[in-house]
Design a protein around this nucleic acid. Structure first.
Lengths: 334, 334
DNA sequence: CTGAAAGCGCTTACAG
DNA sequence: CTGAAAGCGCTTACAG
């Protein structure tokens, strides 16, 4: 079951078997055939770990995800894996569940397997300096989605600002003036960026956003639904809302229905992410498509470029986003 | 950055460093301190691959999933990873997208990384014999969710029959007599098992299921919604439906609403899986909870037991399922 | 308690 | 075109 066994059985040296395995043209066709037959016959399986040790290479990439149960990241992971497999790498998976502590033990453990690189979607409140120490100065790293303060790594992010800007523009174009930004934690960078895009569009339209139009909520349906009341707690109640993401939008929808407000008729709302459900809910959700699987493939490619060229300048890549207009933004302003 | 460097710098032999690394009590406390200080100072990272090679051990487990974009499997993967990390293993991820061909190349590639075992949720129409040849006779394997015909591997499955039986019993207890089984591909084993549980309950209640009550559909909302019409295409139209899974149930719900039939009021329906959305839709969906994350942990444990005892008899484990009653099954029979 | 030596399964110059 | 030898980073008997 090792090159030795194959070599002995086919009457050549280990070196020759190795050359056959790696497809070298140096070996005679007849010898190659003999060896390959023996390989099949014995059901030989290559020990890539041993080869990596000798060649000082790696054929794995670590993928550390903050929340795999979020379909957005599950799709992202599929895209990463898809692209890596295509390039002959294997994915070492780790899921942190948003815990910086778990993230650190996980990364330490993964690093012992000498991955060629790491794709990291950081847990909230990650300690950039500690992570940098864990990862060492020579590891190829691509950070995804959330900035890692104080670490000079390549970074792939969604164009949060532009996405929220597009959504806000869309509602403004439909005649809305009192537009809320609903949901998200104000201290998360993605929420800040989306709020920025929203504010930019509002100000460009000559409408300074009323602070009462900024409503925080955990990005879950249940909490979003409960916060709905805050939208209408004052005289300048909005007629539309740009939601932090689709989950929040779906929660808001429930909250509106519970109040007898019909989404898409009495009130317009937009989401962010374009999760599969967005198209299937009633009314279907106008939202910002981010194509997580394509982002996964892109992340894998960026990382492998870094693996190949460690000295290239650091890159900040912003992935395109797209407005998808559906029924939920169909309300005329009252 | 290797044991050699540490040994040299702290004035001991490689062997001593190795003993320190593995926490052996053989080494003097003072020596240990000196070595450990040097370990930190140089930022040493253990090369587990090299150690595995020498010790003929493995610290990875391959996890091959047919569809990671399905939240059920994403949760399952999280559970697996969680349990494996706790036992000092790392997860090698692979996603086949239900393609047997991709599954084979993926497994071949993963096997070259010498995993301690493989957790496999087979793609539809997998070729058991070929997979068995790929995996070799010595690999610890746990098959999840879908039977792999002709392979003597440990198998963890949901109790599909009992789940459908519970749902059917529930509808019968509410007075329904004409109950459909809606959705799923009749040639998939999970659909067959669920239909069996449904038929058992119906027959036990003295109601032989009318063949017109068996309606196939791909497990997607769109198709399920389109098939709704078939329920009502004849005189013995059902008053309730046991759905193949939650997605199908949600699709059926849309289809009912489109016809002006109110789910949970004019028509009762149940799902299967208890995806997060089941509790949040209106009316909330009565369904069968399967706890995919717990199943993932269970799968990891079963596999590791097999890793530890290769000669134990093969096991078929059926995971418990649970009826969760919510509003969607609230219709009285008309 | 510590060190010298052999070896895990592979690859790669280097001779021939 | 093929073979003998050294070595990747680690561990583990075996002496001392």
């Amino acid at each position: 079951m090792t090159v030795n066994d194959i070599a002995r059985a086919s009457g050549v040296s280990r070196a020759t078997v190795s050359l056959v395995l790696r497809g070298s043209p140096l070996v005679h066709a007849e010898t190659r055939n003999r060896v390959e037959l023996e390989l099949k016959r014995q059901g030989y399986v290559y020990n890539r770990g041993a080869a990596n040790l000798r060649r000082r290479t790696s054929s794995s990439v670590a993928l550390v995800i903050n929340d795999l149960s979020n379909p957005f990241f599950a799709e992202f992971a599929m895209g990463v894996d898809e692209a890596l497999v295509g390039e002959g790498y294997v994915t070492l998976l780790g899921s942190t569940g948003e815990s910086p502590a778990r993230q650190e033990t996980l990364l330490a453990s993964l690093m012992e397997h000498s991955p060629a690189g790491v794709i990291l979607s950081p847990a909230e409140h990650s300690d950039g300096e500690r992570l940098q120490r864990l990862l060492g100065p020579h590891t190829a790293v691509l950070v995804f989605n959330r900035e890692l303060p104080g670490a000079g790594y390549d970074f792939l992010a969604l164009d949060n600002r532009r996405g929220a800007w597009l959504a806000t523009e869309h509602l403004l174009a439909r005649g809305h003036r009192r537009i809320a930004f609903f949901g998200g934690h104000a201290d998360s960078s993605s929420c800040q960026q989306r709020r920025q895009g929203y504010a930019d569009a509002m100000i460009a339209a000559g409408i300074p956003p009323d602070p009462r139009w900024l409503i925080e909520s955990a990005p879950t349906r249940v909490e979003a639904s409960q916060r709905t009341v805050e939208l209408f707690a004052h005289a300048r109640a909005p007629t539309a809302a740009v939601c932090y993401n689709d989950n929040v939008a779906l929660g808001l929808k429930l909250g509106l229905i519970a109040r007898g407000v019909r989404p898409g008729l009495d009130f317009a709302l937009t989401g962010f992410d374009d999760i599969p459900e967005a198209a299937q809910t009633t009314p279907p959700l106008t939202t910002i498509a981010v194509e997580p699987r394509a982002r996964g493939r892109q992340a894998a490619e960026l990382l492998l470029q870094r693996v190949r060229d460690r000295d290239a300048p650091t890159r900040q890549v912003v992935a395109p986003v797209q407005l998808v207009v559906r029924g939920s933004s169909g309300a005329p302003p009252s």
